[in-house]
Structure formats: C-alpha cells, structure tokens
Simulated assay, not measured.
Amino acid sequence: MLIVLTEECLDNWISDFSAFRGDFLRACTITSQAIGYSFKFNQSHLEIAHENWKAGVDRWEATYVMKDSNGLSHLKIMALLLVNLASIEWLEELYEFDAESVRDFEFSGSKNDLEETRKDLAAGRGTFLAFEFCIMVLNWFENARIDRVSNFEFRLTEDLRHDILVYLLSERRDDMAVFLMLKALYVRISKSSAP
C-alpha cells in the first residue's frame, strides 16, 4: 500500500510519531524491496530522530521565522527531517530481499541503474532511504504548487544525488546547508515576483 500525502501530512507527522513512523517505514519498505533489500529498524533511534526533528522545527520557528509569516516551508521542514534521520543510525540491519518473494513494486530503471542504486543503499543505508523519502515528499509538494511561473521539473542528477548523500553521511552535515541545497534544487520563480 502506498502512502497518501496531503497538505497536512507534515503537521501530522511532526505531532504524531506513530503516524510518521507508519508512513516513513512503508515508503522505505517500498523503496528497499524494489531495489532488492529488506531492513530492520531501531524503534528508539527512529523516535529520537523524530523528537530531534520536532525540536529543530520548533527552534527554527522561534529563531528564523518572521512573526507575520505562514511558518516553515515544506523545504525547511523536510531539510530538518533529512538531517535528523541522517544523524542517527535508525536502520539496524540490511538484508537481501528474498528473490522468490512476490514484490509489490519493481525497480523501473535499467539493470545497471539497479546495481548502482543497490550500491548506494548498501553504502548509505538509512540516510539513503531518508533521502529518497524526503525527495518523494518534496516532489509531491512541488508538483502541487500553483504559485510558480513554470511547471515543476525534477532536476536531481545522479552526480548531485551522490554528492548530497556523501555530505549527509559526513560529520559536517548542517541543517541550514541541507536546506540551501534543497532550495537550490527546487527553486522556481514565484508568480508574485514575475515581471
């Protein structure tokens, strides 16, 4: 079963760990099985990452958001989630997915793409799955926007994906830097700024 994204999903996930856990793990399971892996997660580590995410959202709202704004954007919220999921080992074990099992989802790329993606998951583990989840959610929000001049076009290249994952796996990761990377990836001219 796919996860259902809504305008309220981010607020729901921030306020309710079990809602977040269910949707996040469902999306990670779909991704990992399509690539040929399954995993075991650490409940308490995932809960800590969620608590840190919530605290980061609260901190950013208190520190970086102007009083008359609408709060944090989906880009800022997802950047904070990505940093917090990359900062803790929430994925305990990665296993080869039983090839004889029926898969609900298949990888849509070439065999070479599949092998490269399997290597990325094996190396990036929980950070890779968190990145894929965040990109999926961001793409949904960006696709739904009506306040931009141009239509949404996903511009992530494999080189950039690799570089972002390397950065997220380093100890130097920073929530503002991750937000700025994502902002650059998704930036489009707003209708209110257009000439």
Score class of each variant (00 low, 15 high):
99 A>E: 08
99 A>Y: 00
99 A>L: 09
99 A>Q: 04
99 A>V: 01
99 A>K: 06
100 E>W: 00
100 E>D: 11
100 E>Y: 00
100 E>V: 02
100 E>I: 00
100 E>L: 02
101 S>Q: 07
101 S>T: 06
101 S>F: 03
101 S>I: 00
101 S>R: 03
102 V>G: 12
103 R>C: 07
104 D>P: 03
104 D>F: 03
105 F>M: 01
105 F>Y: 03
106 E>C: 00
106 E>I: 02
106 E>T: 04
106 E>P: 00
106 E>W: 02
106 E>H: 02
106 E>K: 06
107 F>K: 08
107 F>E: 10
107 F>S: 07
108 S>H: 14
109 G>T: 06
109 G>D: 07
109 G>I: 04
109 G>C: 02
110 S>V: 12
110 S>E: 13
110 S>D: 14
111 K>R: 10
111 K>P: 12
111 K>I: 10
111 K>A: 11
112 N>F: 00
112 N>L: 03
112 N>D: 03
112 N>H: 01
112 N>S: 09
113 D>G: 13
113 D>N: 10
113 D>Q: 08
113 D>V: 09
113 D>M: 07
113 D>L: 09
114 L>T: 15
114 L>V: 11
114 L>D: 15
115 E>I: 11
115 E>G: 06
115 E>V: 10
116 E>G: 13
116 E>N: 15
117 T>P: 05
117 T>E: 10
117 T>V: 07
118 R>T: 06
118 R>D: 06
118 R>W: 01
118 R>P: 08
118 R>K: 11
118 R>A: 05
119 K>R: 15
119 K>N: 14
119 K>G: 14
119 K>C: 14
119 K>E: 14
120 D>Y: 08
120 D>V: 01
120 D>K: 09
121 L>A: 14
121 L>Y: 13
121 L>E: 13
121 L>D: 05
122 A>G: 10
122 A>K: 06
122 A>I: 10
122 A>N: 04
122 A>H: 07
122 A>M: 07
123 A>V: 15
123 A>D: 15
123 A>L: 15
124 G>W: 06
124 G>S: 07
125 R>I: 09
126 G>P: 00
126 G>Y: 00
126 G>F: 02
126 G>N: 02
126 G>H: 01
126 G>S: 00
126 G>V: 02
126 G>R: 03
127 T>P: 15
127 T>H: 09
127 T>Y: 04
128 F>K: 12
129 L>T: 05
130 A>W: 01
130 A>C: 05
131 F>M: 11
131 F>R: 01
131 F>T: 11
131 F>P: 07
132 E>P: 08
132 E>V: 11
132 E>N: 11
133 F>C: 01
133 F>Y: 06
134 C>I: 13
134 C>Y: 05
134 C>W: 08
134 C>D: 11
134 C>Q: 07
134 C>G: 08
135 I>F: 04
135 I>S: 09
135 I>D: 08
135 I>T: 12
135 I>L: 04
136 M>A: 04
136 M>G: 08
136 M>T: 02
136 M>N: 14
136 M>S: 10
137 V>E: 05
137 V>Q: 09
137 V>C: 10
137 V>P: 11
139 N>L: 01
139 N>Q: 06
139 N>E: 06
139 N>P: 11
140 W>K: 10
140 W>D: 14
140 W>Q: 10
140 W>S: 11
140 W>Y: 12
140 W>P: 13
